[in-house]
Design a protein around this nucleic acid. Structure first.
Lengths: 148, 148
DNA sequence: ATACCTGCAAAGTATTTGCACGAAA
DNA sequence: TTTCGTGCAAATACTTTGCAGGTAT
């Protein structure tokens, strides 16, 4: 996996390329995305930034995550019954295991998706840009907690 | 594929089993779900019912889709940047091709997912209840429209 | 008769937008 | 200096909830 620093560099380069100004808030948001090994939602990102920027607003976080997403440098993982979750440390589509109880998201390794992808393009006539493969269920911890 | 009538029967039976009253509005919502070959959102369901029930409220549609979903008789397809979409005519998880421009959703046939599923359970310790595999891109029509 | 449902309006969430001031280039 | 970005507050969109009257069983 690319290092957090590499990811951050890449994001800031893309911001420059696209003539976005490198404000401290924007950089802080990019850093949180690049460094996160979990899959934070907007509010979590906001809370991680607040210690360094006590006056930052939620709107700024929304705006900048959207900017970075529009450049394709962060992926949104939408899970039913909760706001968007974001993954900025890797950009290749890969499967997730989502716990429906505690909302934990675990990254899985991609598996022969390419063959599948080609056959979908052929069958549907779609030009496929990305995909998602997510498994839903209960993680080990929640299985135990439920019994107790 | 199960016929719409079979699907509707199954849903009404499950409603009875769970002691839900069979109100005309509830039945109308179940029928729309059972008959839809597309993937309507709440408002679309509402609009399809309105001709027969001009005074039905959006809240009733929300409530009943939720009831039917809680019995596992309709699947929710969440796509980023739009409200929930619902699929009531088939219950087996299967892949979709989603057009990011016009939001059309096309059903695909499931493909050797079971092997993949087992290895995920083994690797993560999750108890997997369902999954989703969705491909995003541009449908043929939107590809042409974009060029024009 | 009873418990559940409905429509309406109000309240919640989550997210976006208008604006005046401030900061990056 | 110019253009863009920020924080704030208001607006929007989507969904849920409280309630009084109505309906299925």
């Amino acid at each position: 996996m690319e290092s957090s620093e590499d990811r951050l560099c890449r994001i800031t380069n893309r911001l420059r390329e696209n003539s976005y100004k490198l404000t401290p808030q924007r950089l802080a948001i990019a850093r949180v995305l690049a460094e996160s090994r979990d899959h934070p939602d907007i509010e979590t990102i906001y809370n991680r930034i607040k210690p360094g920027f006590p006056r930052i607003s939620l709107a700024t976080v929304y705006r900048n995550v959207m900017v970075i997403k529009s450049m394709g440098e962060v992926m949104e993982i939408g899970i039913p019954g909760s706001g968007g979750r974001y993954e900025g440390n890797r950009l290749d589509p890969h499967p997730h295991a989502v716990c429906e109880r505690c909302k934990t998201i675990i990254d899985l390794e991609p598996d022969g998706m390419t063959g599948l992808l080609e056959s979908v393009q052929r069958e549907t006539g779609f030009e496929i840009t990305t995909h998602r493969l997510d498994f839903f269920g209960l993680c080990e911890k929640c299985r135990k907690d439920k019994k107790a």
